[in-house]
Amino acid sequence: MNTLNLSLLFWPYLLLIAICCLFFFFNIFHIYRYAISSPGSYLVAFAYFFSFAIMLIGTILLTINIDWQTPLNLNLPSLTSSKISPF
């Protein structure tokens, strides 16, 4: 019997990452194609590459511990706690 698990979200997540990569390269293309040639433009392009690498690595680190085989049983935890319950 096939059960739904978290891997259902993996491919849409990967698709969104790919779209983000695409828009990042659009930005780099615009800098490469249309910017005025100057040290500042090269610095901007380098900063883009560096920061995007950090963002991607950070994203991977955030999601690396996810167990994608976890079955999708939605047993919600109790949302009340001593701090928010007035009783």
Binding site: L6, L9, Y13, L62, T63, I66, D67, T70, L72, N73, L74, L76, P77
Partner: peptide
């Protein structure tokens, strides 16, 4: 389930 969804 919700933890990974929130993280993603």
């Amino acid at each position: 389930i919700l933890g990974p969804i929130i993280t993603l």
